[in-house]
């Protein structure tokens, strides 16, 4: 029997939710025995090798590449999980939405970062504009704004307990939501 396949990715996140995986401690071994990891920073696979049962998304979408990756995950995964506050509602990167809605504050921000800041060494004297750089979006979007999300695991970062229990329940086919006493948005 083939084991269920799990894919994970970090978009506009801090990798904290992936680090939270490690908070499962020795239960990680139990989980590894039940599933196989496909595309994931844990396996360093950059593309899907085949269709996956569970896709886990950390972070929202702050650039073009994030959107492409997220759509690819939706296309290749049966159940898509938004893991953590950034994937759910934008999280810390979404703080930039407060300035990105207008040109002037945005220009000021980019100029200070790349042109006028006191501790800069930018020989090109330009704001980086290389075609290889993913285009920054007008704002940070939660995953559910881009694709359909099946399950959201809240937390910043979610606890190892809630990740393990949710994944185990999903694998057992017994997932019916979270214990509300254990919900945390921080």
């Amino acid at each position: 029997m083939t084991r269920p396949r799990v894919a994970t990715v970090s978009l506009a996140g801090c990798f904290g939710c992936h680090m939270a995986f490690l908070d499962m401690d020795e239960r990680l071994v139990t989980l590894m025995a039940r599933v196989e990891f496909d595309r994931s920073p844990l396996t360093d696979l950059k593309t899907f090798t085949r269709r996956c049962d569970i896709g886990i998304i950390e972070g929202g979408c702050c650039n073009e590449e994030n959107v492409h990756t997220l759509i690819e995950f939706r296309r290749n995964c049966d159940v898509l999980i938004a893991l953590g506050q950034c994937a759910i509602m934008g999280g810390l990167p979404a703080m930039r939405n407060a300035i990105m809605h207008a040109d002037d504050p945005l220009r000021e921000c980019l100029e200070e970062a790349y042109l006028t800041g006191p501790y800069l060494r930018n020989l090109t004297r330009h704001v980086p504009n290389d075609p290889a750089l993913p285009l920054i979006l007008d704002k940070v979007y939660p995953c559910s704004d881009i694709v359909d999300i099946d399950i959201q695991i809240p937390g910043c970062a979610p606890s190892g307990d809630i990740i393990f229990d949710t994944l185990t329940a999903l694998l057992d086919g017994t997932f019916h939501g979270f214990d509300r006493a254990r919900l945390r948005f921080d």
Binding site: S144, D150, G177, R180
Partner: peptide
């Protein structure tokens, strides 16, 4: 926030 916990606000929005 606590009210969101109590009312189980976890569904995709």
């Amino acid at each position: 926030q606590a009210m969101a916990y109590r009312l189980e606000m976890t569904q995709p929005t």
